[in-house]
Write a protein that binds this DNA or RNA. Structure first.
Lengths: 228, 228, 228, 228
DNA sequence: TATGAATGAGCATTCATTCAT
DNA sequence: AATGAATGAATGCTCATTCAT
């Protein structure tokens, strides 16, 4: 089974294999942890999933605990980057702000509902008490980098007179809440896949309420309340 | 089945335990599961916490799995009852709607941030895949009984012309989202205790945004936006 | 199945119930021990099978070990009686000795292959080292009461000049061996039920060989060797 | 799967165990199972007897059940080989057939009464219902390889005119029965060691009866009936 | 007498982790 | 650097047995 696993694409020097293996282990670890939870996952399974012998896992990462931390971190960073990229879409001013917000909301929900993201949240939520560092990893530092990034955008939009978010941090937080709260309900704690058009509805509803509260007059007039 | 257990009329001599072992076991179980998580908790600990021998646990509840389910269910019912009681406070019409909503929001957050409620959510979130029934227990049936109860109240208030929630279910969901979303952020997935005045602020902010979106004109004028 | 077990035919006074219960327990015990083996059987099952609470079992019989001994003993006595009755059929001189022996052989195999007898042997065989008394119970005393009874009959037949068994004990033992040895093979250690006509064949074959060795001349001539 | 285990070419330095753990475990297992029975034996004891940690047992053999099966199989094969070797002694024609048969009978009883063989039968008998495969292992396939091998020899002897066993399978089965039946009685289900001269007597008696039934005339005359 | 409830002891099995290679 | 083998420590669960009623 293990066959030729080491570095088929290695330029020639060894070190590439090293990295590949570590990568494979971390990926396998996340897969297994996501499926089984931290306590229930066993290193044997992870090693098997990574096509590696158990001690190899211990050579690369020292403990089960560390293995967990690293695996989470890798995925968390990826997820964070995706989320930030979504928020960045509000940087270039769009003519139709509502449409832009709905698009961002929709894309955010797409990220949020991805398998990896869901697993990440589940694992983090379940294990914060044992791995407090996790929170930082998932949130991406201080409070919440995604919210902060969004707040930045909302601040700019407010300065530009296109939004009335005088407390951008609050507005951002509530925007996210309006998106994720109902989302969580729909997905049943991440058990059920929510279809894309429902995601879109959720985004529209969130944006509608958001703009009622933080929009400027000229926007509210243009679009009537959607019927969900 | 066991219903009202052995000695409801135990004069006081405490016949060497037996007062209500089952109750004690379930409480201990919740405590330990909450502290350790399902997989990491061990029946031995639970038995010790309940001052009971291990087999006694197995006599009353058959499995670790069943023990978990029952323990969760008991606490979930209690939490649900508390939440519903809070929502019911919107039944008797109050003159100052904003104040009433803020009060409800605040009380809801109090429940929401209680140790038990937090633990309940954490456990449910972590173990849905292994115990799908949990979701029903925590939500209290169908979709979400708390949201539904709130939606009922909002519908009445709308009919009374005091609110503009034409889609009460959506409004309720968003109200809850505006409360819990930021709350979750503040509490760090339930790691940190949020002080009461911050809870009040959160409620105020949520209500403010909510009323911006669903309030009727006469309300919005009276109160200026709070500064958090 | 056991349904109303307590003294439906009890004249009226209590003691009958006592005995009935003990009987029921012993029967249940044999059933369960037979099915599960000594170590694997558990008192709970036995109590359940006897429609009795576990401590009741301990009230009537003191240990699991004693329960086993008693249960075995009862069945062993019954089986022994049946076997002896079969051997006794050789007491009244029959004109056709071969037929008489075949009949006895057949009847003996019927007893031997009964569920109870099979279970008895299995249990005894399995547990002799832990319960040496068992051997006595199953054999019915000293060496083997059945063999002895048969030996008595063979001795008489020899004295009557109808048989040439000068060592009746040996002849008896070999007669039994010729019956049970092949029987054991056929039944696969008691796993398979051997059909009645095969039992008859086995008896015929055993008797044939037996008479070749221990018969007197006048018999051998009359009947040709059967073809099995 | 493991087939020939680790160190068939172990130079001799014995690298801290490992010589052949699997072998040691299986031997220990048989010892303990034989002494305690399947259900009563515990893996801990087996591990201790094999000078190995408990998990090592589980590494090599997966279950208690599998451990049992394998342990039995190994011993059964050995015992079978011994028995077959004994029967093969009838291949080369001997001048004194009676002596040859007595020798084979005696040797067979020696095998049959060995500790291992006795334990094997006891275990198989006790556990057939839970481990039906056992029967095959003990009998060595189809019906009974030993009987078949003997039947082959008897057939040849009959063809050579030295025996009158027209149904060799039956003759073989009865020969074995005449040996083992009385043997079983003497040894008290294998509890008592039967001294060698008694074994010889048993063989002589069995052969005597056997030859009475299946011998040709020229043999019977030469030897008078032994007095046991 | 019969029983519901409780328990101490024990067992199969699993797992994270470490050697020796 | 990677691995097969081995182990100490737990863990879920069962059972024979005993109280208190």
């Amino acid at each position: 089974m293990t066959g030729a696993s080491t570095s088929e694409a290695s330029g020639g020097k060894a070190p590439r294999g090293r990295i590949d293996k570590r990568q494979a282990i971390l990926e396998a670890a996340f897969t297994v942890f996501a499926r089984e939870g931290y306590a229930n996952a066993c290193v044997k399974q992870i090693a098997a999933e990574a096509n590696v012998a158990k001690p190899t896992v211990y050579n690369h990462l020292n403990d089960k605990a560390n293995l967990f931390r690293q695996a989470i971190e890798v995925v968390a960073e990826k997820a964070m980057a995706e989320n930030l990229a979504v928020m960045e879409r509000l940087a270039s001013p769009k003519p139709d702000l509502r449409a832009a917000l709905e698009d961002v909301g929709h894309r955010f929900l797409l990220c949020y509902s991805s398998d990896e993201s869901t697993a990440l949240r589940r694992l983090a939520y379940a294990e914060v008490s044992r791995f407090p560092e996790l929170m930082g990893a998932v949130r991406g530092g201080g409070t919440n980098r995604v919210t902060e990034a969004l707040a930045d955008r909302l601040a700019r939009l407010t300065l530009d007179g296109r939004l009335g978010a005088n407390d951008p941090a609050l507005a951002a937080e509530q925007f996210i809440a309006l998106l994720t709260g109902p989302m969580e309900t729909r997905s049943g704690f991440g058990t059920t896949k929510v279809p894309d058009d429902e995601l879109r509805s959720l985004a529209r509803a969130a944006v509608h309420t958001f703009l009622q509260a933080f929009g400027t007059a000229d926007i509210d007039i243009t679009v009537p309340a959607p019927s969900f």
